[in-house]
Design a protein around this nucleic acid. Structure first.
Length: 436
RNA sequence: GGGAUCGUAGCUCAGUUGGUUAGAGCGCCUGCCUGUCACGUAGGAGGUCGCGGGUUCGAGUCCCGUCGGUCCCGCCA
Protein backbone atom coordinates (compact mmCIF):
# COMPACT_ATOMS: atom_id res chain seq x y z
CA UNK A 1 0.00 0.00 0.00
CA UNK A 2 1.26 3.45 -0.89
CA UNK A 3 2.03 5.74 1.97
CA UNK A 4 -0.47 8.58 1.94
CA UNK A 5 0.83 12.07 1.27
CA UNK A 6 -0.85 14.58 3.57
CA UNK A 7 -0.53 18.20 4.62
CA UNK A 8 -0.05 19.49 8.14
CA UNK A 9 -3.72 20.32 8.68
CA UNK A 10 -4.66 16.64 8.18
CA UNK A 11 -2.40 15.20 10.89
CA UNK A 12 -5.12 14.43 13.42
CA UNK A 13 -6.90 12.14 10.97
CA UNK A 14 -3.79 9.97 10.56
CA UNK A 15 -2.68 9.32 14.12
CA UNK A 16 -0.70 6.11 14.34
CA UNK A 17 -0.22 5.67 10.61
CA UNK A 18 2.76 6.25 8.39
CA UNK A 19 2.45 9.28 6.14
CA UNK A 20 4.47 11.37 3.74
CA UNK A 21 4.53 15.12 4.11
CA UNK A 22 6.43 17.83 2.29
CA UNK A 23 7.41 21.36 3.12
CA UNK A 24 10.26 23.74 3.87
CA UNK A 25 12.39 23.47 6.97
CA UNK A 26 11.45 26.29 9.29
CA UNK A 27 13.66 25.43 12.25
CA UNK A 28 16.26 22.85 13.19
CA UNK A 29 17.18 21.82 16.71
CA UNK A 30 19.93 19.23 16.87
CA UNK A 31 20.26 17.67 20.33
CA UNK A 32 22.96 15.19 19.40
CA UNK A 33 21.27 11.83 19.13
CA UNK A 34 17.89 13.48 18.77
CA UNK A 35 16.82 16.29 16.48
CA UNK A 36 13.68 18.33 15.97
CA UNK A 37 12.83 19.71 12.56
CA UNK A 38 9.83 21.96 12.08
CA UNK A 39 8.59 22.07 8.52
CA UNK A 40 6.15 24.53 7.07
CA UNK A 41 3.74 23.55 4.33
CA UNK A 42 0.88 25.19 2.51
CA UNK A 43 -1.52 25.16 5.42
CA UNK A 44 0.56 25.10 8.56
CA UNK A 45 3.57 23.46 10.12
CA UNK A 46 4.54 20.27 11.91
CA UNK A 47 7.44 19.09 14.01
CA UNK A 48 9.42 16.08 12.81
CA UNK A 49 11.41 14.09 15.36
CA UNK A 50 14.56 12.28 14.24
CA UNK A 51 16.40 9.78 16.42
CA UNK A 52 17.72 7.20 13.96
CA UNK A 53 21.35 7.63 12.96
CA UNK A 54 20.79 7.58 9.17
CA UNK A 55 18.09 10.19 9.45
CA UNK A 56 20.16 12.33 11.81
CA UNK A 57 22.98 12.40 9.26
CA UNK A 58 20.57 13.79 6.69
CA UNK A 59 19.16 16.32 9.14
CA UNK A 60 22.69 17.63 9.72
CA UNK A 61 23.05 18.37 6.01
CA UNK A 62 19.87 20.41 5.98
CA UNK A 63 19.53 24.15 6.46
CA UNK A 64 16.58 26.41 7.15
CA UNK A 65 14.26 26.69 4.10
CA UNK A 66 15.46 23.43 2.55
CA UNK A 67 12.48 21.80 0.81
CA UNK A 68 12.01 18.25 2.02
CA UNK A 69 9.85 15.17 1.76
CA UNK A 70 9.47 13.39 5.07
CA UNK A 71 8.06 10.01 5.89
CA UNK A 72 7.16 8.80 9.37
CA UNK A 73 4.49 7.94 11.88
CA UNK A 74 2.03 10.52 13.18
CA UNK A 75 2.04 10.53 16.98
CA UNK A 76 0.56 12.76 19.66
CA UNK A 77 3.13 15.12 21.12
CA UNK A 78 4.28 13.87 24.52
CA UNK A 79 4.07 17.39 25.93
CA UNK A 80 1.67 20.03 24.87
CA UNK A 81 -1.01 19.64 22.27
CA UNK A 82 -1.15 18.45 18.71
CA UNK A 83 0.82 15.97 16.72
CA UNK A 84 4.32 15.37 15.46
CA UNK A 85 5.92 12.93 13.06
CA UNK A 86 8.43 10.31 14.14
CA UNK A 87 10.82 10.42 11.18
CA UNK A 88 11.75 7.32 9.23
CA UNK A 89 13.02 8.99 6.08
CA UNK A 90 13.95 12.48 5.06
CA UNK A 91 14.76 13.58 1.51
CA UNK A 92 16.33 16.97 0.87
CA UNK A 93 15.01 18.21 -2.49
CA UNK A 94 17.48 21.05 -2.97
CA UNK A 95 20.06 22.86 -0.95
CA UNK A 96 19.77 26.58 -0.23
CA UNK A 97 22.73 28.26 -1.88
CA UNK A 98 22.93 30.95 0.77
CA UNK A 99 22.47 31.21 4.47
CA UNK A 100 19.37 33.27 5.06
CA UNK A 101 19.81 37.04 5.22
CA UNK A 102 16.90 37.32 7.65
CA UNK A 103 15.49 34.88 10.15
CA UNK A 104 12.01 34.04 9.05
CA UNK A 105 11.51 31.08 11.36
CA UNK A 106 11.19 33.30 14.41
CA UNK A 107 8.16 35.54 14.63
CA UNK A 108 9.87 38.17 16.77
CA UNK A 109 12.61 38.53 14.16
CA UNK A 110 10.14 38.95 11.32
CA UNK A 111 8.22 41.55 13.32
CA UNK A 112 11.44 43.49 13.89
CA UNK A 113 12.45 43.77 10.23
CA UNK A 114 12.66 47.21 8.72
CA UNK A 115 10.33 47.81 5.79
CA UNK A 116 13.13 48.00 3.24
CA UNK A 117 14.70 44.73 4.43
CA UNK A 118 11.29 43.09 4.41
CA UNK A 119 10.81 44.14 0.78
CA UNK A 120 14.39 43.68 -0.45
CA UNK A 121 14.22 40.00 0.55
CA UNK A 122 10.59 39.55 -0.45
CA UNK A 123 11.00 36.06 -1.98
CA UNK A 124 12.14 34.93 1.45
CA UNK A 125 10.06 37.06 3.83
CA UNK A 126 6.89 36.12 1.96
CA UNK A 127 7.47 32.60 3.27
CA UNK A 128 7.07 33.51 6.91
CA UNK A 129 3.73 32.40 8.35
CA UNK A 130 2.76 35.88 9.40
CA UNK A 131 3.65 37.57 6.13
CA UNK A 132 2.00 35.00 3.91
CA UNK A 133 -1.14 35.14 6.06
CA UNK A 134 -1.76 38.68 4.76
CA UNK A 135 -2.17 37.28 1.26
CA UNK A 136 -4.38 34.42 2.32
CA UNK A 137 -6.68 36.98 3.89
CA UNK A 138 -6.62 39.12 0.76
CA UNK A 139 -7.53 36.07 -1.29
CA UNK A 140 -10.54 35.51 0.93
CA UNK A 141 -11.52 39.17 0.64
CA UNK A 142 -11.54 38.68 -3.13
CA UNK A 143 -13.51 35.45 -2.93
CA UNK A 144 -16.08 37.05 -0.67
CA UNK A 145 -16.34 40.08 -2.94
CA UNK A 146 -16.97 37.87 -5.96
CA UNK A 147 -19.37 35.58 -4.13
CA UNK A 148 -21.50 38.45 -2.82
CA UNK A 149 -21.72 40.21 -6.17
CA UNK A 150 -22.36 37.11 -8.27
CA UNK A 151 -25.29 36.25 -6.03
CA UNK A 152 -26.72 39.62 -6.99
CA UNK A 153 -26.29 39.06 -10.72
CA UNK A 154 -23.14 41.10 -11.16
CA UNK A 155 -20.83 39.92 -13.93
CA UNK A 156 -17.06 39.92 -13.58
CA UNK A 157 -15.25 41.86 -16.30
CA UNK A 158 -11.67 42.54 -17.37
CA UNK A 159 -11.06 45.97 -18.75
CA UNK A 160 -7.89 47.02 -20.61
CA UNK A 161 -4.97 48.38 -18.64
CA UNK A 162 -3.41 50.02 -21.68
CA UNK A 163 -5.49 53.06 -22.47
CA UNK A 164 -5.37 56.09 -24.73
CA UNK A 165 -6.75 58.65 -22.26
CA UNK A 166 -7.06 59.03 -18.53
CA UNK A 167 -10.25 59.63 -16.62
CA UNK A 168 -9.49 63.07 -15.31
CA UNK A 169 -6.78 64.72 -17.26
CA UNK A 170 -3.41 63.11 -17.45
CA UNK A 171 -1.03 64.34 -14.77
CA UNK A 172 -1.14 61.17 -12.71
CA UNK A 173 -0.81 58.65 -15.52
CA UNK A 174 2.17 56.52 -16.43
CA UNK A 175 2.99 57.17 -20.04
CA UNK A 176 4.14 54.40 -22.32
CA UNK A 177 5.13 53.89 -25.88
CA UNK A 178 2.50 51.93 -27.80
CA UNK A 179 4.06 51.12 -31.18
CA UNK A 180 5.15 54.70 -31.53
CA UNK A 181 1.94 56.20 -30.22
CA UNK A 182 1.38 57.64 -26.77
CA UNK A 183 -0.53 55.41 -24.37
CA UNK A 184 -1.06 55.19 -20.63
CA UNK A 185 -1.48 52.65 -17.89
CA UNK A 186 -5.07 52.77 -16.66
CA UNK A 187 -5.48 54.65 -13.40
CA UNK A 188 -8.99 53.20 -13.01
CA UNK A 189 -11.41 51.00 -14.94
CA UNK A 190 -13.93 53.82 -14.53
CA UNK A 191 -14.95 54.44 -18.14
CA UNK A 192 -15.01 50.78 -19.07
CA UNK A 193 -17.09 49.68 -16.13
CA UNK A 194 -19.60 52.43 -16.93
CA UNK A 195 -19.71 51.34 -20.54
CA UNK A 196 -20.31 47.78 -19.38
CA UNK A 197 -23.28 48.90 -17.30
CA UNK A 198 -24.90 49.58 -20.65
CA UNK A 199 -24.23 45.99 -21.66
CA UNK A 200 -24.52 43.91 -18.49
CA UNK A 201 -26.18 46.33 -16.07
CA UNK A 202 -24.18 45.11 -13.07
CA UNK A 203 -20.42 44.52 -13.28
CA UNK A 204 -17.35 44.19 -11.11
CA UNK A 205 -13.63 43.86 -11.59
CA UNK A 206 -10.65 43.03 -9.41
CA UNK A 207 -7.52 44.30 -11.12
CA UNK A 208 -4.45 46.48 -10.72
CA UNK A 209 -4.61 50.21 -11.34
CA UNK A 210 -1.69 52.56 -11.82
CA UNK A 211 -1.14 55.99 -10.31
CA UNK A 212 1.88 58.07 -11.23
CA UNK A 213 1.51 60.32 -8.20
CA UNK A 214 4.78 61.14 -6.46
CA UNK A 215 3.67 60.43 -2.94
CA UNK A 216 5.64 58.51 -0.36
CA UNK A 217 3.41 57.52 2.53
CA UNK A 218 2.23 54.44 4.40
CA UNK A 219 -1.10 54.48 2.57
CA UNK A 220 -0.10 54.94 -1.07
CA UNK A 221 1.08 52.58 -3.78
CA UNK A 222 1.73 53.39 -7.42
CA UNK A 223 0.19 50.07 -8.37
CA UNK A 224 -2.61 48.63 -6.29
CA UNK A 225 -5.53 46.24 -6.56
CA UNK A 226 -8.82 47.99 -7.10
CA UNK A 227 -12.04 46.12 -6.36
CA UNK A 228 -14.45 47.93 -8.62
CA UNK A 229 -18.24 47.77 -8.77
CA UNK A 230 -20.68 49.55 -11.08
CA UNK A 231 -24.44 49.10 -11.40
CA UNK A 232 -27.30 50.52 -13.40
CA UNK A 233 -30.88 51.56 -12.63
CA UNK A 234 -30.15 52.97 -9.22
CA UNK A 235 -32.24 55.59 -7.47
CA UNK A 236 -29.32 57.55 -6.07
CA UNK A 237 -26.01 57.21 -4.21
CA UNK A 238 -27.72 55.69 -1.17
CA UNK A 239 -28.46 52.51 -3.14
CA UNK A 240 -24.73 52.19 -3.63
CA UNK A 241 -23.97 52.75 0.04
CA UNK A 242 -26.61 50.17 0.95
CA UNK A 243 -24.92 47.67 -1.35
CA UNK A 244 -21.43 48.52 -0.12
CA UNK A 245 -22.55 48.26 3.49
CA UNK A 246 -23.77 44.68 2.92
CA UNK A 247 -20.75 43.86 0.79
CA UNK A 248 -18.13 44.83 3.38
CA UNK A 249 -20.16 43.05 6.04
CA UNK A 250 -20.02 39.88 3.96
CA UNK A 251 -16.31 40.31 3.24
CA UNK A 252 -15.46 40.66 6.92
CA UNK A 253 -17.71 37.76 7.91
CA UNK A 254 -16.12 35.47 5.37
CA UNK A 255 -12.61 36.38 6.51
CA UNK A 256 -13.71 35.87 10.09
CA UNK A 257 -15.03 32.39 9.27
CA UNK A 258 -12.16 31.09 7.20
CA UNK A 259 -9.08 32.96 8.44
CA UNK A 260 -9.14 32.39 12.19
CA UNK A 261 -5.49 31.35 12.39
CA UNK A 262 -4.32 34.15 10.14
CA UNK A 263 -6.23 36.78 12.12
CA UNK A 264 -4.89 35.55 15.44
CA UNK A 265 -1.31 35.83 14.16
CA UNK A 266 -1.96 39.57 13.91
CA UNK A 267 -4.25 39.85 16.89
CA UNK A 268 -6.75 41.35 14.46
CA UNK A 269 -10.33 41.98 15.45
CA UNK A 270 -13.00 41.77 12.76
CA UNK A 271 -15.24 44.83 12.80
CA UNK A 272 -18.87 44.24 13.59
CA UNK A 273 -20.63 45.78 10.65
CA UNK A 274 -24.12 47.05 11.37
CA UNK A 275 -25.67 49.99 9.62
CA UNK A 276 -22.67 52.11 8.77
CA UNK A 277 -23.27 55.74 9.80
CA UNK A 278 -23.52 58.34 7.02
CA UNK A 279 -22.46 61.92 7.62
CA UNK A 280 -22.01 64.76 5.21
CA UNK A 281 -18.60 66.30 4.79
CA UNK A 282 -19.69 69.51 6.50
CA UNK A 283 -21.13 67.59 9.47
CA UNK A 284 -17.88 65.66 9.66
CA UNK A 285 -15.84 68.85 9.65
CA UNK A 286 -18.00 70.27 12.49
CA UNK A 287 -17.44 67.11 14.52
CA UNK A 288 -13.71 67.29 13.94
CA UNK A 289 -13.58 70.93 14.96
CA UNK A 290 -15.43 70.13 18.19
CA UNK A 291 -12.49 67.90 19.14
CA UNK A 292 -9.82 70.45 18.27
CA UNK A 293 -8.09 72.32 21.06
CA UNK A 294 -9.05 75.94 21.45
CA UNK A 295 -6.89 78.24 19.44
CA UNK A 296 -5.98 75.66 16.83
CA UNK A 297 -7.01 76.40 13.31
CA UNK A 298 -10.53 75.50 12.21
CA UNK A 299 -10.57 72.66 9.74
CA UNK A 300 -12.46 73.18 6.53
CA UNK A 301 -11.66 69.86 4.93
CA UNK A 302 -11.01 66.24 5.80
CA UNK A 303 -7.27 65.68 6.17
CA UNK A 304 -5.69 62.43 7.36
CA UNK A 305 -5.81 63.61 10.97
CA UNK A 306 -9.48 64.50 10.57
CA UNK A 307 -10.20 61.05 9.15
CA UNK A 308 -8.78 59.51 12.29
CA UNK A 309 -10.79 61.82 14.54
CA UNK A 310 -14.05 61.19 12.75
CA UNK A 311 -13.54 57.42 12.88
CA UNK A 312 -12.68 57.52 16.56
CA UNK A 313 -15.82 59.60 17.13
CA UNK A 314 -18.11 57.07 15.48
CA UNK A 315 -16.37 54.18 17.16
CA UNK A 316 -17.07 55.75 20.56
CA UNK A 317 -20.58 56.93 19.70
CA UNK A 318 -21.95 54.06 17.62
CA UNK A 319 -19.36 51.31 18.02
CA UNK A 320 -18.76 51.47 14.27
CA UNK A 321 -15.33 50.91 12.73
CA UNK A 322 -16.69 52.28 9.46
CA UNK A 323 -18.25 55.57 8.45
CA UNK A 324 -19.53 57.02 5.20
CA UNK A 325 -18.70 60.61 4.34
CA UNK A 326 -21.17 62.01 1.83
CA UNK A 327 -21.86 65.26 0.03
CA UNK A 328 -18.43 66.14 -1.27
CA UNK A 329 -18.36 69.41 -3.19
CA UNK A 330 -18.65 68.79 -6.90
CA UNK A 331 -15.40 70.69 -7.40
CA UNK A 332 -13.31 68.00 -5.70
CA UNK A 333 -14.89 65.13 -7.61
CA UNK A 334 -14.31 64.02 -11.21
CA UNK A 335 -16.41 65.50 -14.02
CA UNK A 336 -18.67 62.43 -14.22
CA UNK A 337 -19.89 62.83 -10.62
CA UNK A 338 -23.64 63.42 -10.34
CA UNK A 339 -24.41 66.90 -8.95
CA UNK A 340 -26.51 67.30 -5.82
CA UNK A 341 -27.82 70.87 -5.63
CA UNK A 342 -28.09 72.16 -2.07
CA UNK A 343 -29.21 75.56 -0.74
CA UNK A 344 -26.00 77.48 -1.27
CA UNK A 345 -23.46 75.12 -2.73
CA UNK A 346 -23.04 72.56 -5.45
CA UNK A 347 -22.53 69.18 -3.88
CA UNK A 348 -22.19 65.74 -5.45
CA UNK A 349 -23.89 62.40 -5.04
CA UNK A 350 -20.62 60.81 -4.02
CA UNK A 351 -19.16 59.32 -0.89
CA UNK A 352 -16.08 57.91 0.75
CA UNK A 353 -15.96 55.00 3.15
CA UNK A 354 -13.53 55.32 6.04
CA UNK A 355 -12.32 52.28 7.98
CA UNK A 356 -10.46 52.83 11.25
CA UNK A 357 -9.16 56.20 10.18
CA UNK A 358 -8.39 55.53 6.53
CA UNK A 359 -10.30 55.99 3.31
CA UNK A 360 -10.80 52.56 1.74
CA UNK A 361 -13.50 53.36 -0.82
CA UNK A 362 -14.70 56.16 -3.03
CA UNK A 363 -17.91 55.97 -4.98
CA UNK A 364 -20.94 57.77 -6.22
CA UNK A 365 -23.66 58.19 -8.73
CA UNK A 366 -22.51 59.22 -12.21
CA UNK A 367 -24.06 61.58 -14.70
CA UNK A 368 -25.99 59.43 -17.18
CA UNK A 369 -27.44 62.02 -19.58
CA UNK A 370 -25.27 62.82 -22.55
CA UNK A 371 -25.81 66.59 -22.63
CA UNK A 372 -25.18 66.95 -18.91
CA UNK A 373 -21.98 65.00 -19.19
CA UNK A 374 -20.80 67.14 -22.12
CA UNK A 375 -21.44 70.35 -20.22
CA UNK A 376 -19.77 68.95 -17.09
CA UNK A 377 -16.70 68.25 -19.17
CA UNK A 378 -16.74 71.64 -20.82
CA UNK A 379 -17.18 73.26 -17.42
CA UNK A 380 -13.83 71.80 -16.46
CA UNK A 381 -12.08 72.67 -19.66
CA UNK A 382 -12.06 69.12 -20.98
CA UNK A 383 -12.53 68.45 -24.66
CA UNK A 384 -15.43 65.99 -25.27
CA UNK A 385 -13.73 64.97 -28.49
CA UNK A 386 -10.94 63.37 -26.43
CA UNK A 387 -13.53 61.18 -24.69
CA UNK A 388 -15.70 60.34 -27.67
CA UNK A 389 -15.39 56.57 -27.28
CA UNK A 390 -16.50 56.75 -23.67
CA UNK A 391 -19.28 59.10 -24.66
CA UNK A 392 -20.68 56.60 -27.15
CA UNK A 393 -22.52 54.71 -24.43
CA UNK A 394 -24.29 57.90 -23.34
CA UNK A 395 -25.29 58.69 -26.90
CA UNK A 396 -26.96 55.30 -27.06
CA UNK A 397 -28.71 55.84 -23.73
CA UNK A 398 -27.51 55.07 -20.23
CA UNK A 399 -29.62 54.41 -17.13
CA UNK A 400 -28.98 56.17 -13.82
CA UNK A 401 -25.95 54.35 -12.47
CA UNK A 402 -23.01 54.48 -10.15
CA UNK A 403 -20.41 52.46 -8.37
CA UNK A 404 -17.42 52.43 -6.12
CA UNK A 405 -13.96 50.95 -5.69
CA UNK A 406 -12.38 49.34 -2.64
CA UNK A 407 -8.61 49.41 -2.23
CA UNK A 408 -7.65 45.83 -1.41
CA UNK A 409 -4.31 46.61 0.22
CA UNK A 410 -5.87 49.38 2.26
CA UNK A 411 -8.68 47.28 3.68
CA UNK A 412 -6.15 44.56 4.55
CA UNK A 413 -3.79 47.09 6.16
CA UNK A 414 -6.56 48.47 8.34
CA UNK A 415 -7.93 45.09 9.34
CA UNK A 416 -4.54 43.73 10.38
CA UNK A 417 -3.16 46.98 11.75
CA UNK A 418 -0.20 46.94 9.36
CA UNK A 419 2.11 49.94 9.65
CA UNK A 420 2.17 50.38 5.86
CA UNK A 421 0.02 49.48 2.89
CA UNK A 422 3.26 48.37 1.22
CA UNK A 423 3.24 45.32 3.48
CA UNK A 424 -0.16 44.37 2.04
CA UNK A 425 1.21 44.18 -1.52
CA UNK A 426 3.16 41.11 -2.63
CA UNK A 427 5.74 43.13 -4.54
CA UNK A 428 4.87 46.77 -3.92
CA UNK A 429 5.61 49.45 -6.47
CA UNK A 430 6.25 52.80 -4.86
CA UNK A 431 8.01 55.99 -5.82
CA UNK A 432 11.45 54.46 -5.47
CA UNK A 433 10.87 50.72 -5.69
CA UNK A 434 10.32 48.62 -8.81
CA UNK A 435 12.01 45.44 -7.56
CA UNK A 436 11.79 42.64 -6.64
C1' G B 1 5.86 69.21 -5.67
C1' G B 2 7.01 70.74 -0.15
C1' G B 3 8.98 69.16 4.63
C1' A B 4 11.17 66.01 8.68
C1' U B 5 14.40 62.29 10.11
C1' C B 6 17.88 58.16 9.89
C1' G B 7 22.41 55.43 7.42
C1' U B 8 27.63 51.26 12.48
C1' A B 9 28.45 43.09 11.20
C1' G B 10 23.76 38.95 7.29
C1' C B 11 19.38 41.06 10.65
C1' U B 12 17.93 44.35 14.86
C1' C B 13 20.58 47.85 17.43
C1' A B 14 24.29 50.29 21.39
C1' G B 15 28.52 53.41 20.88
C1' U B 16 29.33 59.18 26.59
C1' U B 17 31.58 66.33 26.01
C1' G B 18 35.76 64.14 19.34
C1' G B 19 40.56 60.09 22.14
C1' U B 20 44.14 54.99 21.17
C1' U B 21 42.36 47.76 19.44
C1' A B 22 34.33 49.70 17.15
C1' G B 23 30.48 46.44 20.67
C1' A B 24 25.77 43.39 21.96
C1' G B 25 21.71 39.98 20.81
C1' C B 26 20.18 36.83 16.99
C1' G B 27 22.00 34.37 12.60
C1' C B 28 26.45 31.83 10.34
C1' C B 29 30.93 28.06 10.88
C1' U B 30 33.40 23.81 14.12
C1' G B 31 32.38 20.67 18.41
C1' C B 32 29.31 18.45 22.68
C1' C B 33 24.21 17.23 24.17
C1' U B 34 17.77 11.87 23.55
C1' G B 35 12.18 15.98 24.38
C1' U B 36 13.74 20.77 22.15
C1' C B 37 10.04 24.36 20.97
C1' A B 38 13.70 32.13 21.89
C1' C B 39 16.96 24.64 23.36
C1' G B 40 21.46 24.54 26.13
C1' U B 41 26.75 24.58 25.95
C1' A B 42 32.40 25.38 24.35
C1' G B 43 34.96 27.86 20.70
C1' G B 44 35.34 30.72 15.88
C1' A B 45 34.66 33.75 11.53
C1' G B 46 32.42 38.20 10.13
C1' G B 47 33.16 45.86 9.68
C1' U B 48 36.18 50.79 3.97
C1' C B 49 31.07 52.98 10.66
C1' G B 50 26.70 54.54 3.00
C1' C B 51 30.13 57.46 -0.30
C1' G B 52 33.27 62.03 -1.25
C1' G B 53 35.48 66.24 0.74
C1' G B 54 36.58 69.44 5.03
C1' U B 55 37.77 70.98 10.37
C1' U B 56 41.26 68.79 14.01
C1' C B 57 47.29 66.39 16.85
C1' G B 58 43.09 62.90 16.45
C1' A B 59 36.40 61.87 13.37
C1' G B 60 31.65 56.30 13.86
C1' U B 61 31.01 61.11 16.62
C1' C B 62 31.56 68.01 14.16
C1' C B 63 30.75 70.74 9.07
C1' C B 64 29.58 70.65 3.62
C1' G B 65 28.11 67.78 -0.48
C1' U B 66 26.13 63.33 -2.42
C1' C B 67 23.54 58.66 -2.56
C1' G B 68 20.13 55.54 -0.05
C1' G B 69 16.21 54.43 3.62
C1' U B 70 11.91 55.82 6.54
C1' C B 71 7.97 59.09 7.54
C1' C B 72 4.59 63.49 7.10
C1' C B 73 1.79 67.11 3.94
C1' G B 74 -0.64 68.02 -0.77
C1' C B 75 -3.45 64.14 -3.58
C1' C B 76 -5.69 59.72 -3.47
C1' A B 77 -8.05 53.71 -2.90
Amino acid sequence: MMTEEISSSQLSKHTGSTVRIHGHIQSLRDMGNLAFVVIRDMDGSVQLVADEQEVLLIVRQAAPETPVIAEGVVVARPQGQGFEIQLKELTLLSTPALSLPVEIGKQSKVDGLSLSTMLDYRPLTLRSPKVRSIFKIEAVFCEAFREFLRERQFTEIHSPKIVATGTEGGAQLFKLNYFGREAFLAQSPQFYKQIMVGALERVFEIAPVYRAEEHDTTRHLNEYISMDVEMGFIENEHDLMDLLNKLVKHMFEKVSQSCGDELSLWGAKIPEVGTIPRVTLSEAVDIINSYQKKGSKEKTDLDPEGEKIICEHFYQKENSDLVFITGYPLSVRPFYAMPLPLQNEMSSRSFDLLFRGLEITTGGQRIHRHEELISAMQGRGLDPEAFKDYLQCFQYGMPPHGGFAIGLERIAKQLLGLPSVKLAALFPRDINRMTP
